[in-house]
Amino acid sequence: MSARISLDELDHKIIERLGHDARVSNREIGREFDLTEGTIRSRLKRLLDNRVIRVAAVTNANRLRNPILAYLWVEADSAADIEKVAESLASLPEIGFVATTLGRADVLAMTLVENGNELTDFLHQTIDKIPGVRRVRYSLGQNFIKHDYRWCALVD
C-alpha cells in the first residue's frame, strides 16, 4: 500500500471537493477556497504523486441491465499458492477487487456481472483455469444499498 504522507485540513478539503466533481479547474477550486491556482496545483500534484488519491471516471452501473456484484471466495490449493492466486486474479480486467483475507476464504475477488450465465462462464472459463485455485464459493450482491466509489486502493 502507499506510503503515508501527512494530510492537513486543506488537503482534506481538496479531496472532498474533488470527490464530488473532479473536472473542476484548479483556478475554480482556488477561487472557492480563496487561494491561488498555484497552491491548489501543487497540493493536488503532491496528493496524486504520493498516491493518496486517483482521479478517474466512474460509469453508472445502472447502464448494465441487471448489475450483480459477485463476491468470489477463493480457496487455494496450498497456503503457498495464495499470493500467486491473488496476483493472477488481480491481473484479470473483469475483476475490480482482490485481497488476501483472514477468515472466510484465502482470497476474495469481486466482479460485476449482468446475469447468471455470464457468471457461470466466467467461473468455468477463466477462474477455474487459474493454477492454484482449489475451490470457489460465491455470494451475489444484487441490490446496491450503498457503494461508496470514492474509496480505492492505489497499488502498484
Binding site: A57, A90, G103
Partner: peptide
C-alpha cells in the same frame, strides 16, 4: 473476514 493485503481495488462502475 479481514483483508490481509489488497491487491486491487479499482471501482469503475457504481450506482
Amino acid at each position: 473476514s479481514l483483508a490481509l493485503k489488497v491487491f486491487k481495488y479499482n471501482p469503475e462502475w457504481a450506482p
